[in-house]
Nucleic acid binder design. Sequence first.
DNA 1: CGGTCCCTTGAGTGCAATCAAGTGGAGTGG
DNA 2: CCACTCCACTTGATTGCACTCAAGGGACCG
Lengths: 242, 242
Amino acid sequence: MSSFQQLFSSKRRPQVSCESCSLGRLCIPQGLSEQEVELVSRIVTINRTLGKGDYLYHSGEWFHRFLALKSGTVKLVTLDGAGNEYVVDFVMPGELLGFDGLSGERYTCSAIALETVSYCELPPHQLERLGREIPKLSQILLQLSGSQFQLGIQRVVLSRRQADERLAAFLAHLSERHRKRGFSPTEFRLSMTRQEIGNYLGLAPETVSRLMSQFEASGLIVVQGKMVRILDMDGLLRFCPQ
Amino acid sequence: MSSFQQLFSSKRRPQVSCESCSLGRLCIPQGLSEQEVELVSRIVTINRTLGKGDYLYHSGEWFHRFLALKSGTVKLVTLDGAGNEYVVDFVMPGELLGFDGLSGERYTCSAIALETVSYCELPPHQLERLGREIPKLSQILLQLSGSQFQLGIQRVVLSRRQADERLAAFLAHLSERHRKRGFSPTEFRLSMTRQEIGNYLGLAPETVSRLMSQFEASGLIVVQGKMVRILDMDGLLRFCPQ
DNA sequence: CGGTCCCTTGAGTGCAATCAAGTGGAGTGG
DNA sequence: CCACTCCACTTGATTGCACTCAAGGGACCG
């Protein structure tokens, strides 16, 4: 079914461009002039669609494109020699995928759709070429890459904290990202399983579940399956130092 | 004493350039032509020196330069609201510092010398300007930034593993980095304390100490204070999956 | 020679993992 | 439409790894 979707969208290739994309202020166009965005628009392949569980790219595959997520959520995972999966990041609309291919010639992670996703493709070589004409573009790309490093630092700090602080910070971070995208920061759906949250936070899924119940008992949140409502954001933030 | 060193080196500004630097193949010059390296050389301030415990830059300071480490070791640390220190990375000669300033306008980490260090300075604005003339330079910078992301992924994987595996991987990684720099991969000095190793690995210093003794008892390594000799590299690597 | 800091080793504790059982909800097929 | 199945989630009981607390030893520096 999803391969059908892919085929369908490849053929259709609707002519919507970056100028009209509502995610521009989060994505590459941030800080580019209208004219420059138009140039970027030309090298972008737009509106591909994939279903839940589909791979946007595989670890080990040649790094041949950045992806700009338009809708849906993606998990970025890497594997060790024993086949264990490690969730490296969750990616939301307006964010770029592919930084794990930047240092070598191949991706080191796999990007997997957690629900139906749509995205644009940006060939790195063309981005690079365009970067010579638009210096600001190179700068933005470097800055976005720097943000990834920054996220890594945040994770280092988080990984040293107690289980409840990690989960509270995770929920607060999700809330903030929903807010930035114009969605409710207090009520949203978790697109990932408890297992995946636990993997991401370095916790057992049972621990995640227990903490959710604990937060609910404390009156901080209400949980109903994948839906979460935050009742007491301040209380949640009190768990997160910094 | 160290401020004296700094003053001294600032005045002297010896005219050694990137072309003659032995660390070129690890540092920025990798993949640049002789002519291009010459251009980079011109914007580099070379051979500053600092003593143990001195700051190369402070968290919160304006991001006004990349640093290329020439000798010595540096720890990159960040602080949380409670003043807890988190060791984000250890930096060795030939590696760049300053990626933590890339995403914003200020450094988010402090860079602290673990022993006497010497380094070069590269102003980001001039690097950026030069990047327009030398596209390869922008590419290298982006690639180096990507390597930082890659290191972050490695850490994610490592942080989920047992204490002994973390320490074994740490020692193996250090060994490899010494080898790449032409030093003995089997015998080297730890420039950081057990406390700092523990902080970096997410372990208590006592645990690091205990594991060192354990590795020694197993015949994997010999430890004498800060000196480490690796007797059985394969045995050490057997701890590290992947 | 004294002081300080770092390291080592021991004893006890606690937090989160593991093991195990049971519940609930979404999707499927009869 | 309902029963069935599967998978995710929840909750409980137990275990174990690494932390904390504590004390002693050793190296370096003034």
